[in-house]
Simulated assay, not measured.
Amino acid sequence: MGKHVAGLILVSLMGWVSIAVAQQALAPVEARVPFAPTAFMGSDGLTHLAYELDITNIYGDTGPLKPQSLKVYGDDASVPLVSFSAVDLADMTRPAPAEHAPVSIDSGKRAVMYVWITLPKGGLVPRTLRHRIEFVAAKNKTELLDGARVTVNTVTPLAIGPPLRGGWWMAHEGPGNAHSHHWGSLVAVNGMVTIPQRYAFDLVGVDHRGHAMRTGIKDITKSRYADWIGYGVDVIAVAGGVVSDARDGEEERLPLSPQQEPESLTAHGLFGNYVVLEIAPGVFAGYAHLQRGSLKVHVGDHVRRGQLLGHLGQSGSSSAPHLHFQLANAATFEGSEGLPFVFDHFDSLGPETEAQLFGQGEPWAPLPVEHRQAQLPLNDVVIGFP
């Protein structure tokens, strides 16, 4: 009889321990993914997921919470898809901590973690993602978050044509760079916080040396528009669609001149001369910083793939001639979310640094041309449109 009682007590204790373990995930935070990720194929030939994880330290008396690790699990897997250390989190979280300091989320404050996942080659895209974060709280107490599940969007990224006619282009500040002014820029307007430029890049024209300017420029601070490789190149429709917004007549800035604060976080305040095309229901292609007086289309016009829209320039919030290109889920910049896409074909010539654009450091050495299909160029890769 005593053995039976002891066994019952042991079972009860084990059940209590299991409940206690399950109750450990009590971190006093709100954690959520505001916009579900969509899998896409990058120019590295791998499938990626890119999204933001918002962490809010809710209570006023909790004190700072310092995340020590983040693990992301696919579906019901026991092994994480990816693990990030405290050092990793310091590099991928905004507001960014001081140099060499850990992330610390004060009471009542929010931190945004920019999560980039590269899936195993040939592996399946998970249906859902689960997040597990360990925090160090006051008096070195450990707090655990286990949840913040998000369903992965199953929509296939839209395949589009080139936005420029010919040439070589560096996809500057592109996908995968959480430090860029594209993915890293939250836009808070009228009660909404979105990232319209999540998958955007700046296409900077380069020559066979990988330089953005022509030979013979002695002082780049005094360069003219014509000195820049891409200036004036044809900007074309990536797909058939309808012009939902457009603007022309804005003056262009001098190359490498000081930037002014935009009048608003809208297309009018940022894009200068621009065109927005609706190329599928709820999918809008944005072209920014076009040459003054170059637009060939108006709001309401129907365009076909490859049709001339205008010419590459330097209007709006732009430090040098380039084409800013993005896809988003709304015609307006504010309130829209950036969408992934793929070019149906392009040439890849390998990565380049910003310094090499200006002939600094080691000379750029292009890789053998590789013809790519149905991929999204990643950050600072040089591509060509045949």
Rank of each mutant, 00 (worst) to 15 (best):
L10V: 13
L10K: 08
V11N: 13
M14P: 15
I19G: 12
A20N: 06
A22D: 14
A22E: 07
Q24V: 11
L26P: 01
P28G: 09
V29T: 07
A31D: 12
V33L: 01
V33I: 01
A36E: 14
P37D: 01
T38Q: 12
F40R: 07
D44P: 00
D44I: 03
G45K: 04
L46F: 05
T47V: 15
H48I: 08
E52L: 06
E52V: 09
T56D: 10
T56I: 08
Y59A: 15
D61I: 11
T62R: 00
P64M: 04
K66Q: 15
K66E: 13
P67N: 01
P67D: 08
L70K: 01
K71I: 09
V72P: 02
Y73P: 01
G74H: 05
D76F: 04
A77T: 02
A77K: 08
V79D: 10
V79F: 06
V79K: 04
V82S: 02
S83C: 12
S83D: 13
F84T: 04
A86G: 01
V87T: 09
L89E: 09
M92N: 03
T93E: 03
T93D: 05
P97Y: 07
E99V: 15
E99F: 15
H100A: 13
H100P: 01
P102T: 02
I105L: 00
K109S: 15
R110V: 08
V112F: 10
V112Y: 05
M113P: 04
V115H: 04
L119K: 00
G122A: 12
G123R: 00
